[in-house]
Design a protein around this nucleic acid. Structure first.
Lengths: 181, 181
DNA sequence: TATAATTTTCAGAAATTTCTGAAAATTGGT
DNA sequence: ACCAATTTTCAGAAATTTCTGAAAATTATA
C-alpha cells in the first residue's frame, strides 16, 4: 500500500512542519496519514506508506497518543490495532494547543511561581520585577486558555470571528454597568 | 564576567525550554541573559557568561534579531555592539507568538489555499472536506490573531481577564441587536 | 497452556543539528 | 588609504536526535 497521490503533498508537508509543531518528521507524516485516511489504519500500513521501520511507527504512535491526537480502533475479526484521529480537525487543533501549553508554558510558570515564593533578598529589584511580569503574563494566559477551552466550538468560533470587535462590545458593557449603578 | 547567581536558574531553564519555544539551547540562554540584564550586553560578555564560542554567539544574535526580540544599542565611545530586548516582557511574548504564527501556520495555510484553488477532480470528497476544514480553521485563527495583535496591551489584558466571560457579553449583544431590529 | 500474531523495546547506526575557532569581511577612526 | 577593533562566516568536529531491526514482551485464540 502506498500513499494516495493526492495526499502525497500533505504527507510531505506535515513531515516538514512536524518539528515546528512539536514532534519530528515521521510523527508529522504519520499524523497526516491518519487524519487524511477515511478508514482507520494499522501500524503496518503506516510503515509501508511512509517507508519507515515498524519500530519507528510503534514509537510514533505512542507519541501521537501521548498528545491525545489519535486513538485505537479495534476491528472485529482482526487482531491488529487500527488508529484514527480523536475527533474533528477542530478538536485536533485545540488538543495541539492544549498539549503545547502544558509543555511550553507550564514548566516556566512553575519555576516563576516558586521563584516568587522564595523571597531571596539577593535578588535585585530589576530581576524581581521581570520575574513578576513574566509570571503575571503567563498566569493570565493560562487561565484565559483553560477558560476558552471549555467553550463550545460554536461559541468559540463566534468569538474568533469577532476578533478585536470584542473591544467595542466591551465598551458597551462598561456603559451598561456604569448606567446601572 | 559570569552569570549573576540569582539568574543562573533562569539561564539554565531558558536553555532547556529553548527548543520547545522554537530556537536552540544557546539561543534560549542568550535570550535569558539579555532579558534579565538591566544594562545592554555585548557579544563577548554573553560568550563568557555562557562559556560558548564567539562565533556561536554571533549566530545566536542573528537568530534573536530575526525573531525581532532584541535590538542593537550603540554605546558612545565604544565600538562594540550592545544588545537589549525590543521592549517589555509583554512585547516579547506578542513577538514570539507573532513570529511563530508566521513560521508554523503561514506555510500550511498557503499550501491549503493553493490546494483548494486547483480543483483536482482526483480528490475524493473526504479529502476535499478535510482540506477545507483545515483551511477555514487556520484562516479564522489567522485573522483573529492579526486583529488581536493590533489591540493596545490594556484592552488585550482586559479581554484576557474576561476569558470565556465574553460569551455572556456576546449574548447581551445579540439581545440588543435583536431588539433594535 | 502452547502457539502464533502482534506490539514494544532498545542498542547501535544514521541523520541532523549545533558548536568551535580560525580566516575572511566589515566597520570606524585617524 | 591604512590600521586596528569587531563581527561574520563556514568547514569540520561534537553533540543530539531519530531510525532500524532483531530480540523480548504482550496478547488473543484455540
Amino acid at each position: 500500500m502506498s500513499i494516495p497521490s493526492e495526499l502525497e503533498t500533505f504527507v510531505v508537508h506535515f513531515g516538514e512542519m512536524g518539528s515546528r509543531w512539536g514532534f519530528n518528521r515521521t510523527v508529522g507524516q504519520m499524523l497526516a496519514v491518519i487524519v487524511f485516511s477515511e478508514q482507520p489504519v494499522n501500524a503496518d500500513q503506516i510503515a509501508e506508506m511512509l517507508s519507515v521501520s515498524r519500530g519507528n511507527v510503534s514509537m510514533g504512535l505512542k507519541e501521537l497518543q501521548s498528545w491525545q491526537l489519535i486513538r485505537v480502533h479495534s476491528k472485529q475479526g482482526d487482531r491488529k490495532d487500527y488508529f484514527k484521529p480523536i475527533g474533528s480537525v477542530w478538536d485536533l487543533a485545540i488538543q495541539v494547543l492544549s498539549e503545547r501549553r502544558k509543555r511550553e508554558v507550564e514548566p516556566t510558570l512553575s519555576l516563576l511561581r516558586s521563584e516568587l515564593m522564595t523571597e531571596s533578598n539577593s535578588d535585585n529589584q530589576f530581576t524581581r520585577d521581570k520575574i513578576k511580569e513574566m509570571h503575571d503574563l503567563l498566569e493570565l494566559f493560562n487561565t484565559w486558555f483553560s477558560d476558552i477551552q471549555r467553550m463550545s466550538p460554536e461559541s468559540l468560533q463566534t468569538l474568533l470571528k469577532l476578533g478585536s470587535g470584542v473591544g467595542k462590545i466591551l465598551d458597551i458593557k462598561q456603559k451598561l454597568s456604569r448606567s446601572s449603578k
